[in-house]
Each structure stands twice: as C-alpha cells, then as structure tokens.
Design a binder for these strands. Structure first.
Length: 396
DNA sequence: TCTGGGGTCCTAGGACCC
DNA sequence: TCTGGGGTCCTAGGACCC
C-alpha cells in the first residue's frame, strides 16, 4: 500500500477572503464576490454561507436569501498576484506543485520529509505560512491519489486538515454519497441514483464489467477506479491544470464568451460582440505564440439552451480578421434566430505552437492583405497603452 | 433581475480512405 | 456483385471542474 504523499491545498472562500481581508468592517457580514446584474456568485464568505448562499448561485437568488448581502466584483489584478505568491509558498515545500486554479494546488511531498517532516506536519506548516503571509485560511487534504486528496480537503473545510490514507479509504469514503467523488457531477449522480447506486460503496461493490455495461465503458471504468481510490498518484507540474484553470498556457483551445446585458436578436449587435471576442482571443493566441485551425462559436438562447457551431480552416491562424470572418459566417448560418440570444462566444481549437507552422501561407498571386501586420501593431499599442488604446472602427 | 467565463475530456455519427 | 472492418477527421453536444 502506498503511503499518502499528495497534499491538496485549497483556500477557504478565496475570492471573498481576499476581497475582505483589508476591510475589517466586512468580516462579520455576509459578502459575496460576483453576483451583480446577470452574474453568479463566485465566492461567498462564511456569514453568507450561513444564509444558504453558495458559489454558482445566481446573484438574484443570493439576494433573495439575504437582502443585506454585500456584493463585490472580482478584482483579478489583486487576486492573481496573491495567488502567485501563495503558489510560491507551496514551492518552498516541494518543487512538485500542480496548480489547479487561482486558489488550489496539489503538492507531492515525498521528497520533503527529511527537511519538513511527514505530510501532516507539512500541511500545518503551509497553513501557518499562508495565514501569516496572506491573512487567509486554507484547508488541506492528504492522500495517495489525486481524487482522494481533493475529496479530503473538501471535507476538511473550513480551516482544517484531513488525511485519508489508503487503509482508511473504505471506512471514510464508502459511506458517502457518490456525488462526493471528484468528477461525479449532478448529472452522473442522478443517473447513478436512478440505478440504485447511492453511496460510493454501492458503486464499488458493482463488478467493473457490470458497471461498464450500465453506464458505458469509459465512465464505468473511471467510476470503479474512483470508488476504490485508485486515481492517478503522479502530478504533472507546470501545465495549465486538468481543467485549464492553472497558471500555464492552455494546450487545446482558447476562447472568450460574454453574456449580453440584455437578450437580443440584432444581428449587428451580435456581430460587434463577435469582433470584440475574436480580438480578445487572438491577442491571447499571439501572446502565447499559438495558432489554431478550428473556429467555434457558442450561442446561448434566452431559454438557456446552448448550441455550438464550428468550422475548420485550411490553415491554422492567430489573425483577428480570419477568426472574426469565420465566426461571422457561423453566426449568419444560425439565422433566422429561433429566439433572442443571451450569450455569444468565440473559441479557437486545435492549438499548436506557432513555430510549427512557420509564416502565414500565401496563395501565389494573391496580395498579402496585411492583417498580421495590423494585428502586431495593435498588440504593440495595447502593450504600451492598455486594452482600450486601440479599437476597430465598428466597435466605436 | 434566475443561472459567468475559462477550460478539458468523452461520445457519437458521418465522411472518407485503405 | 456484395459485404466488411479499421482508422482519421470533422462536427455537435454534454458532463465536469474552478
């Protein structure tokens, strides 16, 4: 049996904690970060949670639960440096850190025992450091597999530590609802419940072949592994995180989407939004030296149903005009609209490093339209003067 | 005043090729 | 003449995570 060597460190109500740590007058009142006009709660402090407010909840519902709720917009210019500093604190304990998001990371502490002690001791040292240096609390899960460490930190919250070594996995985790498993969301939870599988133990006791037959090969195998704590035990540091929320550059796709202030059926309004989003996405592509071949748009209707349309280009691109043109073609193919549009998005998929493709391919005899040069000029101006320095005529 | 924005991975069907 | 399998690419949708 493997000894637990993984720590999952998760800040408690990170966005809210950072937002209120220098504002003592807000410490004991219900506060959320997010909410707002058509937004959702990104983070709720513990007084707000006392009213039943949770992250992911709409701002409207949160205000209904607590009319005197204080809502603060997220300030990523503050959150990002705080997050970076916290991750550096983690790296002081182990070089093997897999950053999952601004507020959580996995650490492999196998090499740290001699310097810092066993995992439980390291966990407390990390918690003291984060509290002392950043004025916020965090919780730590300790286990031999990623999904178990994650589950442990969640159950340790707030401001606690929980170790689930392999020999205690069955006793601690099998009685829990299947929805507690990392990777089992509401849809899968309901599906399993309908099959009579309520607890993790219920899933674990189904022979894996039977489980595969019930829910499909891949999911069945995955669930069986999760239910026995047999998830991966090695970290992959430096990446963008399993869910693309880490600190690295996204590997597969980059996108931008926006919920409009009011639903609309106005084609020109939607086209302007696509141009704005295409501009943002391609600037990020160029900054990351990436190009992509597939352009996809997302359209969310006023009833919240969502469709996507995509188109693969002959050559990969990072050119604003190319992405916008493809996005606009996709949008026009959705007309006539079946109802008003709530959200539009632009995503570029199939990313590759730009150096792999060399320069832009030009068809012989076709004049260079000059778009890459225009983009570079825009990037330079934006770097120097900020994102509002340059706007296309149609965005003014 | 219901329900953000950034990602990853999987499935499934059809086209196309060998 | 008829039937068949495997692999890859493309597209659309859905589940999940923070």
């Amino acid at each position: 049996m493997t000894a637990p060597h993984l720590l999952h460190v998760d800040m408690d109500a990170f966005y809210a904690s950072v937002a209120i740590r220098d504002r003592p007058e807000l410490h004991d009142v219900p506060v959320v970060v997010g909410g707002g006009h058509r937004g959702v709660v990104l983070s709720a402090n513990y007084p707000a949670r006392g009213y039943g407010i949770r992250s992911g909840m709409s701002g409207g519902e949160a205000r209904r639960l607590c009319p005197r709720l204080v809502e603060v917009p997220p300030d990523f210019d503050v959150l990002r440096p705080v997050s970076k500093a916290i991750m550096e604190t983690f790296r002081g304990f182990s070089p093997v850190v897999e950053v999952m998001s601004l507020d959580e990371a996995f650490l492999d502490v196998r090499g740290a025992a001699r310097l810092f002690g066993p995992p439980e001791v390291i966990a407390e040292r990390i918690r003291s450091r984060v509290r002392a240096e950043h004025g916020i609390t965090c919780s730590v899960g300790i286990a031999a597999a990623v999904s178990v460490a994650k589950l442990a930190s969640r159950r340790a919250k707030p401001d606690g530590v929980l170790a689930i070594p392999p020999e205690r996995f069955v006793a601690v985790v099998h009685p829990l609802d299947v929805g507690e498993l990392y990777g089992v969301g509401e849809a899968t939870r309901q599906r399993l419940h309908r099959l009579g599988l309520i607890t993790v133990g219920d899933v674990a006791r189904v022979p894996v072949a039977e489980l595969r037959r019930m829910v499909g090969g891949h999911l069945g195998g995955h669930l069986h592994a999760l239910a026995w704590g047999a998830d991966r035990s090695e970290l992959s540091p430096g990446g963008a995180g399993t869910f693309g929320f880490g600190e690295g550059v996204p590997e597969g796709s980059m996108g931008a989407q926006h919920t409009l202030a009011a639903d609309t059926r106005d084609r020109d309004r939607l086209a302007r939004e696509l141009l704005r989003l295409s501009t943002r996405v391609t600037a990020r592509l160029r900054a990351a030296d990436k190009v992509g071949r597939t352009v996809a748009i997302t359209v969310r209707w006023s009833d919240f149903r969502t469709i996507s349309r995509s188109r693969t280009l002959p050559e990969p691109t990072d050119v604003t005009h190319d992405v916008y043109e493809a996005a606009l073609l996709l949008l026009d193919a959705v007309f006539p609209l079946r109802m008003a549009v709530r959200l539009v998005g632009v995503r570029v998929e199939g990313l590759r490093p730009r150096r792999e493709i060399g320069g832009r391919q030009l068809v012989i005899g076709e004049p260079d339209p000059g778009w890459p040069d225009a983009d570079r000029a825009v990037d330079r101006a934006t770097d120097r003067f900020g994102p509002t320095a340059v706007r296309r005529g149609s965005l003014l």
